[in-house]
Design a protein around this nucleic acid. Sequence first.
DNA 1: TTGCGTGCAAAGGTTTTGCATGGCA
DNA 2: TGCCATGCAAAACCTTTGCACGCAA
Lengths: 144, 144
Amino acid sequence: MEEKNRYRTRQREQLLSYLAEHPRKHFTAADICEHFRNGDQKIGTTTVYRQLERLVTEGQVKKYVFEEGESACFEYIGKGAEEEFLCYHLKCEKCGRLIHLECREITMFEKHITEHHGFLIDPKRTVFYGVCRDCLEKEDIYEQ
Amino acid sequence: MEEKNRYRTRQREQLLSYLAEHPRKHFTAADICEHFRNGDQKIGTTTVYRQLERLVTEGQVKKYVFEEGESACFEYIGKGAEEEFLCYHLKCEKCGRLIHLECREITMFEKHITEHHGFLIDPKRTVFYGVCRDCLEKEDIYEQ
DNA sequence: TTGCGTGCAAAGGTTTTGCATGGCA
DNA sequence: TGCCATGCAAAACCTTTGCACGCAA
Protein backbone atom coordinates (compact mmCIF):
# COMPACT_ATOMS: atom_id res chain seq x y z
CA MET A 1 0.00 0.00 0.00
CA GLU A 2 2.11 2.81 -1.29
CA GLU A 3 1.55 6.39 -0.34
CA LYS A 4 0.28 8.09 -3.42
CA ASN A 5 1.16 11.61 -4.32
CA ARG A 6 -0.48 13.71 -1.70
CA TYR A 7 -0.87 17.40 -1.27
CA ARG A 8 -0.29 19.41 1.86
CA THR A 9 -3.40 21.46 2.24
CA ARG A 10 -4.25 24.04 4.83
CA GLN A 11 -7.04 21.84 6.12
CA ARG A 12 -4.85 18.82 6.60
CA GLU A 13 -2.11 20.78 8.34
CA GLN A 14 -4.50 22.52 10.68
CA LEU A 15 -6.35 19.36 11.55
CA LEU A 16 -3.17 17.46 12.24
CA SER A 17 -1.72 20.28 14.32
CA TYR A 18 -4.83 20.51 16.38
CA LEU A 19 -4.76 16.82 17.17
CA ALA A 20 -1.03 16.89 17.83
CA GLU A 21 -1.44 19.75 20.29
CA HIS A 22 -3.73 17.57 22.36
CA PRO A 23 -2.12 14.19 22.76
CA ARG A 24 -4.04 11.73 24.93
CA LYS A 25 -7.26 13.51 24.22
CA HIS A 26 -10.20 11.92 22.49
CA PHE A 27 -11.98 13.79 19.76
CA THR A 28 -15.12 12.89 17.93
CA ALA A 29 -15.52 14.02 14.36
CA ALA A 30 -18.15 16.40 15.66
CA ASP A 31 -15.71 17.94 18.16
CA ILE A 32 -13.31 18.67 15.38
CA CYS A 33 -15.94 20.04 13.06
CA GLU A 34 -17.09 22.29 15.87
CA HIS A 35 -13.59 23.62 16.45
CA PHE A 36 -13.04 24.40 12.80
CA ARG A 37 -16.35 25.95 12.15
CA ASN A 38 -15.40 29.61 12.06
CA GLY A 39 -13.62 32.20 9.98
CA ASP A 40 -10.43 31.45 8.13
CA GLN A 41 -10.04 28.22 10.10
CA LYS A 42 -13.08 26.66 8.54
CA ILE A 43 -12.92 23.01 7.59
CA GLY A 44 -15.90 21.22 6.14
CA THR A 45 -17.39 18.12 7.65
CA THR A 46 -16.56 15.97 4.67
CA THR A 47 -12.93 16.97 4.80
CA VAL A 48 -12.70 16.26 8.50
CA TYR A 49 -13.95 12.73 7.95
CA ARG A 50 -11.75 12.16 4.94
CA GLN A 51 -8.59 13.43 6.57
CA LEU A 52 -9.24 11.49 9.76
CA GLU A 53 -9.63 8.37 7.69
CA ARG A 54 -6.32 9.05 5.99
CA LEU A 55 -4.53 9.76 9.24
CA VAL A 56 -5.76 6.49 10.67
CA THR A 57 -4.56 4.63 7.61
CA GLU A 58 -1.20 6.32 7.91
CA GLY A 59 -0.99 5.33 11.55
CA GLN A 60 -0.74 8.83 12.97
CA VAL A 61 -4.14 8.69 14.56
CA LYS A 62 -6.00 5.91 16.35
CA LYS A 63 -9.69 5.39 16.00
CA TYR A 64 -11.80 3.94 18.78
CA VAL A 65 -15.33 2.83 19.18
CA PHE A 66 -16.48 2.64 22.75
CA GLU A 67 -20.20 2.53 23.10
CA GLU A 68 -22.90 1.91 20.63
CA GLY A 69 -24.67 5.01 19.52
CA GLU A 70 -21.65 7.08 20.35
CA SER A 71 -19.52 8.49 17.65
CA ALA A 72 -16.08 7.14 17.00
CA CYS A 73 -13.18 8.77 18.86
CA PHE A 74 -9.88 9.80 17.41
CA GLU A 75 -6.61 10.22 19.26
CA TYR A 76 -3.28 11.47 18.03
CA ILE A 77 -0.43 9.05 18.49
CA GLY A 78 2.13 10.72 16.27
CA LYS A 79 4.58 9.63 13.74
CA GLY A 80 7.40 7.85 15.45
CA ALA A 81 10.21 5.70 14.24
CA GLU A 82 9.32 3.16 11.63
CA GLU A 83 9.07 0.43 14.24
CA GLU A 84 6.92 2.32 16.63
CA PHE A 85 4.78 3.13 13.68
CA LEU A 86 3.90 -0.50 13.36
CA CYS A 87 3.34 -1.30 16.98
CA TYR A 88 0.07 -2.43 18.44
CA HIS A 89 -1.92 -0.57 21.02
CA LEU A 90 -3.88 -1.53 24.08
CA LYS A 91 -6.71 0.71 25.13
CA CYS A 92 -8.03 0.67 28.66
CA GLU A 93 -11.79 0.94 28.66
CA LYS A 94 -11.84 2.13 32.25
CA CYS A 95 -9.36 4.98 32.32
CA GLY A 96 -8.83 5.52 28.62
CA ARG A 97 -5.10 5.06 28.80
CA LEU A 98 -3.40 4.12 25.56
CA ILE A 99 -0.58 1.65 25.91
CA HIS A 100 2.00 1.10 23.24
CA LEU A 101 2.66 -2.58 23.06
CA GLU A 102 6.17 -3.66 22.37
CA CYS A 103 6.11 -7.36 22.44
CA ARG A 104 7.73 -10.20 20.62
CA GLU A 105 4.84 -12.58 21.21
CA ILE A 106 2.53 -10.62 19.04
CA THR A 107 4.80 -10.99 16.07
CA MET A 108 4.54 -14.71 16.47
CA PHE A 109 0.83 -14.51 16.85
CA GLU A 110 0.60 -12.31 13.79
CA LYS A 111 2.54 -14.86 11.82
CA HIS A 112 0.28 -17.63 13.03
CA ILE A 113 -2.80 -15.77 11.90
CA THR A 114 -1.32 -15.12 8.50
CA GLU A 115 -0.12 -18.66 7.97
CA HIS A 116 -2.96 -20.63 9.50
CA HIS A 117 -5.93 -18.37 9.01
CA GLY A 118 -4.89 -16.60 5.82
CA PHE A 119 -5.50 -13.22 7.36
CA LEU A 120 -3.09 -10.30 7.30
CA ILE A 121 -3.53 -8.14 10.36
CA ASP A 122 -3.26 -4.37 10.10
CA PRO A 123 -1.68 -3.03 13.30
CA LYS A 124 -2.65 0.51 12.48
CA ARG A 125 -6.32 -0.26 12.60
CA THR A 126 -6.30 -2.88 15.28
CA VAL A 127 -6.78 -1.94 18.90
CA PHE A 128 -6.92 -4.29 21.85
CA TYR A 129 -9.61 -3.15 24.21
CA GLY A 130 -9.55 -4.23 27.81
CA VAL A 131 -8.53 -3.19 31.30
CA CYS A 132 -5.08 -2.03 32.33
CA ARG A 133 -3.09 -3.06 35.40
CA ASP A 134 -3.97 -0.03 37.47
CA CYS A 135 -7.65 -0.34 36.85
CA LEU A 136 -7.56 -4.06 37.53
CA GLU A 137 -6.06 -3.34 40.92
CA LYS A 138 -8.69 -0.77 41.68
CA GLU A 139 -11.36 -3.27 40.75
CA ASP A 140 -9.86 -5.79 43.13
CA ILE A 141 -10.05 -3.33 45.97
CA TYR A 142 -13.60 -2.24 45.46
CA GLU A 143 -15.30 -5.28 44.09
CA GLN A 144 -14.01 -8.05 46.24
CA MET B 1 -33.62 -6.85 37.31
CA GLU B 2 -36.75 -8.89 37.61
CA GLU B 3 -38.45 -10.34 34.62
CA LYS B 4 -41.72 -8.57 34.25
CA ASN B 5 -44.80 -10.28 32.99
CA ARG B 6 -43.96 -11.15 29.45
CA TYR B 7 -45.94 -12.61 26.64
CA ARG B 8 -44.89 -15.38 24.32
CA THR B 9 -45.62 -14.02 20.92
CA ARG B 10 -45.24 -15.67 17.57
CA GLN B 11 -42.56 -13.15 16.65
CA ARG B 12 -40.47 -13.78 19.69
CA GLU B 13 -40.65 -17.55 19.34
CA GLN B 14 -39.75 -17.51 15.68
CA LEU B 15 -36.89 -15.11 16.12
CA LEU B 16 -35.43 -17.07 18.98
CA SER B 17 -35.77 -20.37 17.14
CA TYR B 18 -34.06 -18.97 14.11
CA LEU B 19 -31.10 -17.78 16.13
CA ALA B 20 -30.94 -21.00 18.11
CA GLU B 21 -30.80 -23.01 14.91
CA HIS B 22 -27.62 -21.23 13.98
CA PRO B 23 -25.35 -21.15 16.98
CA ARG B 24 -21.96 -19.50 16.48
CA LYS B 25 -23.27 -17.59 13.56
CA HIS B 26 -23.55 -13.86 13.72
CA PHE B 27 -26.50 -12.01 12.40
CA THR B 28 -27.09 -8.35 11.90
CA ALA B 29 -30.52 -6.98 12.56
CA ALA B 30 -30.81 -6.54 8.81
CA ASP B 31 -30.06 -10.22 8.20
CA ILE B 32 -32.86 -11.17 10.50
CA CYS B 33 -35.30 -8.67 9.06
CA GLU B 34 -34.47 -10.01 5.62
CA HIS B 35 -35.18 -13.56 6.69
CA PHE B 36 -38.53 -12.69 8.20
CA ARG B 37 -39.72 -10.48 5.43
CA ASN B 38 -42.26 -12.73 3.76
CA GLY B 39 -45.68 -14.25 4.20
CA ASP B 40 -46.88 -15.60 7.51
CA GLN B 41 -43.35 -15.39 8.87
CA LYS B 42 -43.25 -11.64 8.70
CA ILE B 43 -41.66 -9.75 11.56
CA GLY B 44 -41.33 -5.99 11.51
CA THR B 45 -38.06 -4.18 11.88
CA THR B 46 -39.01 -2.54 15.12
CA THR B 47 -39.90 -5.84 16.67
CA VAL B 48 -36.68 -7.42 15.57
CA TYR B 49 -34.72 -4.69 17.29
CA ARG B 50 -36.84 -4.77 20.40
CA GLN B 51 -36.74 -8.53 20.79
CA LEU B 52 -33.01 -8.65 20.14
CA GLU B 53 -32.50 -6.11 22.84
CA ARG B 54 -34.57 -8.17 25.25
CA LEU B 55 -32.69 -11.34 24.39
CA VAL B 56 -29.42 -9.59 25.01
CA THR B 57 -30.65 -8.35 28.36
CA GLU B 58 -31.75 -11.84 29.24
CA GLY B 59 -28.36 -13.17 28.27
CA GLN B 60 -29.52 -15.55 25.58
CA VAL B 61 -27.96 -13.55 22.81
CA LYS B 62 -24.61 -11.84 22.62
CA LYS B 63 -24.29 -8.51 20.95
CA TYR B 64 -21.12 -7.25 19.33
CA VAL B 65 -20.64 -3.63 18.46
CA PHE B 66 -17.45 -3.17 16.59
CA GLU B 67 -17.76 -0.07 14.53
CA GLU B 68 -19.95 2.90 14.81
CA GLY B 69 -22.17 3.24 11.80
CA GLU B 70 -21.93 -0.42 11.08
CA SER B 71 -24.57 -2.77 12.22
CA ALA B 72 -24.24 -4.59 15.47
CA CYS B 73 -23.92 -8.37 15.32
CA PHE B 74 -25.98 -10.80 17.31
CA GLU B 75 -25.08 -14.33 18.18
CA TYR B 76 -27.11 -16.96 19.95
CA ILE B 77 -25.47 -18.38 23.02
CA GLY B 78 -28.43 -19.97 24.77
CA LYS B 79 -29.16 -20.03 28.41
CA GLY B 80 -26.01 -21.82 29.45
CA ALA B 81 -22.46 -20.76 30.06
CA GLU B 82 -21.95 -17.40 28.59
CA GLU B 83 -18.24 -16.95 28.96
CA GLU B 84 -17.21 -19.97 26.95
CA PHE B 85 -18.63 -18.53 23.82
CA LEU B 86 -16.58 -15.41 23.83
CA CYS B 87 -14.35 -15.45 20.85
CA TYR B 88 -12.38 -13.03 18.78
CA HIS B 89 -13.18 -11.66 15.39
CA LEU B 90 -11.27 -10.74 12.31
CA LYS B 91 -12.63 -8.01 10.10
CA CYS B 92 -11.61 -7.63 6.50
CA GLU B 93 -11.13 -4.01 5.54
CA LYS B 94 -11.55 -4.79 1.87
CA CYS B 95 -14.76 -6.77 1.71
CA GLY B 96 -16.10 -6.05 5.17
CA ARG B 97 -16.45 -9.68 6.11
CA LEU B 98 -16.47 -10.49 9.79
CA ILE B 99 -14.74 -13.75 10.59
CA HIS B 100 -15.01 -15.81 13.74
CA LEU B 101 -11.59 -16.68 15.01
CA GLU B 102 -11.38 -20.04 16.63
CA CYS B 103 -7.81 -20.44 17.58
CA ARG B 104 -5.81 -21.84 20.42
CA GLU B 105 -2.87 -19.52 19.86
CA ILE B 106 -4.84 -16.50 20.85
CA THR B 107 -5.55 -17.93 24.25
CA MET B 108 -1.84 -18.22 24.80
CA PHE B 109 -1.29 -14.73 23.54
CA GLU B 110 -4.06 -13.45 25.79
CA LYS B 111 -2.40 -15.09 28.76
CA HIS B 112 0.92 -13.56 27.83
CA ILE B 113 -0.55 -10.10 27.70
CA THR B 114 -2.22 -10.55 31.05
CA GLU B 115 0.85 -11.94 32.76
CA HIS B 116 3.57 -9.86 31.20
CA HIS B 117 1.81 -6.63 30.38
CA GLY B 118 -0.81 -6.60 33.11
CA PHE B 119 -3.60 -6.04 30.65
CA LEU B 120 -6.82 -8.00 30.46
CA ILE B 121 -8.11 -8.09 26.91
CA ASP B 122 -11.82 -7.84 26.26
CA PRO B 123 -12.69 -10.17 23.38
CA LYS B 124 -16.14 -8.74 23.09
CA ARG B 125 -14.79 -5.45 21.95
CA THR B 126 -11.53 -6.36 20.30
CA VAL B 127 -11.37 -6.90 16.58
CA PHE B 128 -8.41 -7.62 14.39
CA TYR B 129 -8.56 -5.51 11.29
CA GLY B 130 -6.78 -6.56 8.16
CA VAL B 131 -7.24 -8.34 4.88
CA CYS B 132 -8.79 -11.76 4.44
CA ARG B 133 -7.54 -14.61 2.31
CA ASP B 134 -9.86 -13.98 -0.60
CA CYS B 135 -9.02 -10.32 -0.82
CA LEU B 136 -5.32 -11.01 -0.50
CA GLU B 137 -5.56 -13.29 -3.49
CA LYS B 138 -7.41 -10.71 -5.50
CA GLU B 139 -4.74 -8.15 -4.65
CA ASP B 140 -2.05 -10.49 -5.83
CA ILE B 141 -3.77 -10.94 -9.14
CA TYR B 142 -4.54 -7.33 -9.87
CA GLU B 143 -1.83 -5.35 -8.21
CA GLN B 144 1.30 -7.27 -8.95
C1' DT C 1 -60.19 -7.00 30.26
C1' DT C 2 -55.50 -5.50 30.97
C1' DG C 3 -51.41 -3.99 29.44
C1' DC C 4 -47.54 -5.77 26.82
C1' DG C 5 -46.26 -6.44 21.91
C1' DT C 6 -46.36 -5.12 17.16
C1' DG C 7 -45.39 -2.43 13.15
C1' DC C 8 -45.85 1.58 10.23
C1' DA C 9 -43.98 5.90 9.45
C1' DA C 10 -41.02 9.26 10.79
C1' DA C 11 -37.32 10.99 13.40
C1' DG C 12 -32.46 11.06 14.92
C1' DG C 13 -27.70 11.02 14.40
C1' DT C 14 -23.33 9.75 12.19
C1' DT C 15 -20.86 9.00 8.16
C1' DT C 16 -20.50 8.68 3.06
C1' DT C 17 -21.12 10.07 -1.81
C1' DG C 18 -21.92 12.93 -6.14
C1' DC C 19 -20.24 16.57 -8.31
C1' DA C 20 -18.59 21.04 -9.38
C1' DT C 21 -15.08 24.03 -7.75
C1' DG C 22 -10.64 25.05 -5.61
C1' DG C 23 -5.79 24.70 -5.02
C1' DC C 24 -1.14 22.19 -4.56
C1' DA C 25 2.91 20.92 -7.09
C1' DT D 1 -1.48 21.93 -16.39
C1' DG D 2 -2.75 17.64 -14.09
C1' DC D 3 -4.45 15.74 -10.18
C1' DC D 4 -5.82 15.60 -5.75
C1' DA D 5 -8.62 17.94 -2.15
C1' DT D 6 -12.54 20.48 -0.67
C1' DG D 7 -17.25 21.25 0.61
C1' DC D 8 -22.13 21.73 -0.18
C1' DA D 9 -26.19 19.18 -0.40
C1' DA D 10 -28.13 14.99 -0.44
C1' DA D 11 -27.99 10.25 0.26
C1' DA D 12 -27.11 6.22 2.86
C1' DC D 13 -27.33 3.75 7.09
C1' DC D 14 -28.54 1.90 11.41
C1' DT D 15 -31.44 2.36 15.16
C1' DT D 16 -35.01 4.52 18.02
C1' DT D 17 -39.57 6.66 18.96
C1' DG D 18 -44.57 7.98 18.63
C1' DC D 19 -48.77 6.11 18.35
C1' DA D 20 -52.70 3.33 17.22
C1' DC D 21 -53.96 -1.24 16.87
C1' DG D 22 -53.35 -6.29 17.95
C1' DC D 23 -53.13 -10.03 20.89
C1' DA D 24 -51.55 -13.10 25.01
C1' DA D 25 -52.95 -14.26 29.48
